[in-house]
C-alpha cells in the first residue's frame, strides 16, 4: 500500500502503478477503479502508461553467451577455494620476513648503548616495510589474475 502521509492524489498515482502491474489487493483495486471513474487526469495517465508498457514489453535485454556462464562459476569457485590459501601464504610471508628483519637488527636491539626509542623506531619501520611489501606483492598478483580472467570472460 502507498506510503502514509502521501497526499490523496499522490497516493492514487502510486496505486496507478500497482493497477497497471496487476499488483493491487482487491480492496485497493476497487478503490482505485472508483477514483479512476471520476478523475480525468488519472484516466489519461493510465492510457499513457499502458502505451508505454506496450513499447517496453517489446524490449528484452540480452544476456551473456553460454560460454561466459561456463567460466563464471569456475571463477567464483577458484577464488573461494584459494581465499584461505592467500591468508596462510600472507601470514607465513609476514612471519618469515619479520623474522629475517629481526635477525638483521638483532645486534642493535640487544645493545644496551642504543636508546629504547631508536630500537622501537627501527623495529616499527622494518615491520611496516614488511607489511607493505607483502601487501604490494599480493596486489600485483591479484591484478594479474584479474586481468587474465577478464580476457577469459570477453572471449
Amino acid at each position: 500500500m502507498p506510503e502514509q502521509g502521501q497526499s490523496g492524489h499522490d497516493r492514487y498515482k502510486a496505486l496507478l502503478m500497482g493497477f497497471i502491474d496487476g499488483e493491487l489487493a482487491p480492496g485497493e483495486r476497487g478503490e482505485f477503479e472508483q477514483h479512476l471513474a471520476g478523475c480525468r487526469e488519472c484516466s489519461a495517465e493510465l492510457e499513457e502508461f499502458r502505451k508505454l508498457k506496450e513499447v517496453t514489453d517489446m524490449v528484452r535485454f540480452g544476456e551473456p553467451e553460454d560460454k561466459v556462464w561456463e567460466v563464471y562459476w569456475r571463477g567464483i569457485y577458484n577464488r573461494v577455494e584459494r581465499g584461505i590459501g592467500w591468508i596462510l601464504a600472507s601470514v607465513g610471508a609476514i612471519l618469515l620476513l619479520a623474522f629475517g628483519a629481526f635477525k638483521l637488527i638483532e645486534g642493535l636491539l640487544v645493545d644496551p648503548a642504543v636508546s629504547v626509542m631508536l630500537k622501537i623506531g627501527v623495529s616499527a619501520l622494518l615491520l611496516g616495510v614488511v607489511f607493505l611489501l607483502v601487501s604490494l606483492v599480493r596486489e600485483r598478483i591479484f591484478g594479474l589474475k584479474h586481468d587474465r580472467y577478464s580476457r577469459e570472460v570477453k572471449r
Binding site: 500500500m1 502507498p2 506510503e3 502514509q4 502521501q6 499522490d10 497516493r11 498515482k13 502510486a14 496505486l15 496507478l16 502503478m17 500497482g18 502491474d21 499513457e48 502508461f49 502505451k51 508505454l52 506496450e54 513499447v55 517496453t56
Partner: peptide, 24 residues
C-alpha cells in the same frame, strides 16, 4: 514499503515515458 516502490516506479516511468515519447 511497497508504497515507496510504487511511488518510485511512478517517477521512473514518467521519465521513461518522456524519453520514449517519439516511439508511440
Amino acid at each position: 514499503p511497497i508504497g515507496t516502490v510504487m511511488s518510485r516506479l511512478y517517477y521512473g516511468r514518467k521519465k521513461l515515458r518522456k524519453a520514449l515519447e517519439g516511439f508511440y
